[in-house]
Nucleic acid binder design. Structure first.
Lengths: 322, 322
DNA sequence: ATTCATAATCAGTTAGGCTGATTTTGAACG
DNA sequence: CGTTCAAAATCAGCCTAACTGATTATGAAT
């Protein structure tokens, strides 16, 4: 009965399952869908979240009864922590399931990609394997590929277009993430009406850039770099400021951005992929690859968080404003 | 049946209760004792740990069947992660139980105390309360006390002797930690045989220092600073190197250190306390104080970790001292 | 209004985990 | 060596938290 002793162990009533339910629900797919992923009934998910809310003493989900819902302010506050806890647990457990990773490994990561999550995952891996020495090299995706043979990289993570995924038979590669590429801008533009397209774009060698130029070419249009930067922050800011039309993957959109699609006459862009390549066949390389590919950090769910509060991007929270 | 789907949610079989059992057991108090703290039977704890070990696929505890036991290498690897997960969960949950902390608070922390844990807790608090702006000021404990009135500090954490705990009625204070102070050295020394005592000690203003000098005084001995430093690292190293006799709290001992007690004729030292004082009566100050005092980081269990592997500090290795 | 899609509710069932008793183990004695 | 002791492992039965399935409630869309 007195379940709530103030022991240093925290409130023992919350379980990881509660957090999982919440995190899944926070994606806004609904109770039914969440239940499917948890191998539980819709009813169970409902009760689970209710229990969690009871324990925390606050509502987490905004439910305008009936259809869809968004997160409450409290929910928004709790979500990052819940994700963090689940990620750490998942990583710690899977790290224990295999022998300790030891040795020295060289990792190549793209410097034109949002890599903070990646860095977190790498550092947690090092924490769980104290005898593992990791060295990270950062370069443009296009260059990393060439460096594999020269620089003795063990594991390489790079982004590329679905049309051109490097598939050397010597290497094992894993698809970490896959998402659509979009034309984005601050306001609506009509493709046909533009003679030249002012692009807000990454430097030469970036595959987003080549995809964009190729697509324009095919449609007999000419694009020019109105704003070029290797930093996501800058690119997003430039697009928001209306300096031109950007080319960004779904996860990198700021909420001020508008997607230019068929209606505006823009050609379709290919999917982009984040690929991990095992360049050496050391056992430790394989282990590290396993760790990273299983890491929840690589999960698209954790991707869509930016500096600006990207609250419930797809729920009708607009209602609050109007 | 197929409980182990490789979903991004991790292995759903592990529960926080498993981790709690493990963490408690890792302290080496035994299954019975752990059960008591968990309000469970010894049998339940045994089964819980067994299940965890089954799931992880490795043994965590070294059990020389019958009596006491230590951690296996795997257990050693898992413990920090388990602690981290429990700490974060506990903090996140208790943070949600109260309204968000907002505002700007000034915290004073002692710079002559091992404060990394404290810093971690503070930064996690800031993460859970994005509208809270925390500013940390570091100073000697003795100085912090005087600064309360001048510097507008909201919350002050300082160490002091049990004999002199500042207890102004205007302030609410919490005891965070309490532990014995010891004379320590690299080898055995006999108190009586020393004319002057070479001390490895913190600078003037440190309460360990005053406690030591007072104790020597009462016994008609004279001490001098053979090595003075404000850094714990330096102090420990100097003691290990045999430069003199140190005065350290239990949690700050390196494992090469020997405690000099009654047998050697050394006088008893007072207990030292880590005290937190609410200097302003803002609501946010109270909330922050609650957060920090409930934080598992403040738990003595998490304290005893130093650079050198301080494995099983109080298991039968105590025999070394006696 | 009707339909549809979804979430909430409720009662009955189930299974995971707990308890309490018992057995096993190893250490400490004489 | 056998005895005693303390602590962990094992086991069978039980209990409760949580799940299921059916039903109801709700709001949006037509």
């Amino acid at each position: 009965m007195f379940d709530c002793q103030p022991s240093s162990l925290g409130d023992r009533r919350v379980t990881l399952e509660h957090l999982r339910a919440f995190v899944l629900l926070a994606e806004g797919k609904g109770f039914q869908q969440a239940g499917l992923q948890l191998y539980r009934s819709q009813s169970a998910v409902t009760q689970s979240l209710k229990r969690l809310e009871d324990i925390l003493g606050c509502k987490l989900l905004e439910r305008r009864q009936g259809h869809i819902m968004g997160l409450t302010a409290d929910g928004e506050r709790f979500l990052p922590a819940a994700n963090e806890i689940l990620t750490r647990t998942s990583e710690a457990v899977s790290a224990m399931k295999q022998p300790e990773i030891a040795g020295r490994l060289l990792i190549g990561v793209p410097d034109d990609f949002k890599v903070v999550d990646l860095h977190d995952a790498i550092s947690r891996c090092a924490e769980l394997n104290r005898n593992l020495r990791l060295e990270v090299v950062s370069a443009l995706s296009s260059q990393l590929l060439y460096q594999i043979d020269n620089s003795g990289l063990d594991l390489v993570i790079l982004k590329c277009l679905e049309d051109f995924v490097p598939s050397d038979k010597r290497w094992r590669s894993h698809l970490l993430r896959r998402e659509p590429l979009h034309w984005v801008a601050a306001q609506r533009h009509v493709f046909e009406s533009m003679s030249e397209v002012p692009l807000v774009i990454f430097p030469d060698g970036c595959c987003y850039r080549s995809a964009a130029l190729l697509a324009l070419d095919r449609n007999g249009k000419h694009g020019y770099g109105a704003y070029v930067s290797a930093s996501y922050e800058n690119i997003r800011a430039a697009v928001s400021a209306g300096l031109g039309i950007g080319v960004l993957p779904a996860s990198a959109l700021a909420n001020a951005h508008i997607i230019l699609g068929k209606q505006e006459g823009f050609p379709e862009l290919p999917m982009v992929e984040l690929v991990m390549i095992q360049a050496t066949d050391k056992y430790a390389t394989k282990q590290l690859a396993d760790f990273l590919s299983h890491s929840a950090t690589m999960n698209p769910r954790n991707v869509n968080e930016y500096s600006d509060h990207n609250v419930s991007a797809e729920s009708p929270s607009a209602g609050i404003l109007g």
